[in-house]
Write a protein that binds this DNA or RNA. Structure first.
Lengths: 201, 201
DNA sequence: GAGATCATAGACAGCGTGTCCAGAAACAGT
DNA sequence: ACTGTTTCTGGACACGCTGTCTATGATCTC
């Protein structure tokens, strides 16, 4: 366990991280070589290999950093109230994404053959499933929908909208507004609109 | 325009197609080389290059075949009734996916740096957006939710569940059942359950 | 300042790529 | 069954990128 990382290491790792993300967004993961990365990061090629085994390892490092960060954030928000449904966790994800939009974009686009995407999806839908189960238990209800499907659907929806939002031209719609929409969708269904009830027909 | 393709071409292209898909599912797109593909397809390496520029071209070919196929299918289903909401288009996608589950898996997992995934998502959400717009107009309602967000959310949800379903161990839950769940989710919202109304709290 | 740690250039073998060729094989139409 | 056309094939080629190693210089920490 390194207590505090050497400044040089911090600098190079950070530079490599940033270089990877921006190059991937520019050309696509497969088209980016280690030589490109070290050139963009202004780092010797040999140095790259003292930090990461290969391009894939660097990519995985980025993904797990993001995921680790996010989990810490969510832990704070999720702890207090457990059974009620607020949009808070979703809002937190959106907020986190605005802080490092490029890394999120890279992941959500499926760069790296979707490995980051899947890691994200799995982590998130596990959390979602647990939350749903807890809520069902706490409220003593019998869900009409398989919770697995529910969790997957919920997460898929979030991620799709999040990516759409991140890719939208600035100024983006306000975070709260998009999150409200998502929550509203979940509560009342997709066709909630004035004077339109899908059961009419 | 080739009227009828030479049998040899058909055979090799088919073999390459299948080889790519199964190898990608096995090892991941990046780890598959052209040499692997031709070995699995039992085809000379030189032959590969007379058909496709590179691995990427083969991948794109697979994706666009699937997408082309799907569009034809959907055209039949979408034409008759336009304003009502049946789960028919969704069901058709699921049916189509069962006919070539591996290709779908490859695409939906984000293999190929998510290019297939994005192509799929764009095509599908464009269709969804058009359908929603038409329905809103036909029913003269004022939607409470931005239709762009709606379309993205809807499609993201479908794709996530579809992948989950394809990756589920056999025997998979019946298509109709999963589709019904999705439709029900859309109609009434995510928390539709006996005795559980999210507005209670 | 001293000792530890990190960065770097350059050299190396290895692998996969994409292109070319010339001969063999399989094809479609008559 | 014959013929002209198209496709398949292995082998050879240069090239670019990879991952490893070493020796030297630079930069950190305390």
């Amino acid at each position: 366990m390194t207590v505090v990382e050497d400044r040089r290491s911090r600098r190079t790792r950070g530079a490599l991280r940033d270089a990877l993300v921006s190059l991937v967004l520019e050309r696509g993961y497969a088209a980016v070589t280690v030589e490109d990365i070290v050139a963009a990061a202004d780092v010797g090629r040999a140095t790259f290999y003292t930090h990461f085994k290969d391009k894939e390892a660097l990519y995985d490092h980025v993904v797990s950093s993001v995921l680790h960060d996010l989990k810490e954030r969510l832990a704070e928000v999720l702890a207090p109230e457990d059974a009620g449904f607020t949009g808070q966790p979703v809002a937190e994800v959106f907020r986190h994404a605005t802080e490092q939009p490029d890394a999120y974009r890279m992941i959500l686009r499926g760069e790296g053959d979707g490995r980051g995407l899947r890691a994200f999806e799995d982590a998130w839908s596990t959390t979602a499933h647990e939350t749903f189960s807890a809520r069902v238990k706490a409220n003593a209800v019998r869900p009409r929908v398989d919770l697995q499907v529910l969790a997957r659907a919920w997460v898929g929806e979030q991620m799709a909208v999040l990516l759409w939002w991140l890719d939208a031209p600035e100024p983006r719609p306000a975070t709260d507004q998009v999150v409200d929409t998502l929550v509203e969708l979940s509560r009342r269904g997709r066709f909630w609109a004035t004077g339109f009830d899908p059961d009419e027909r």
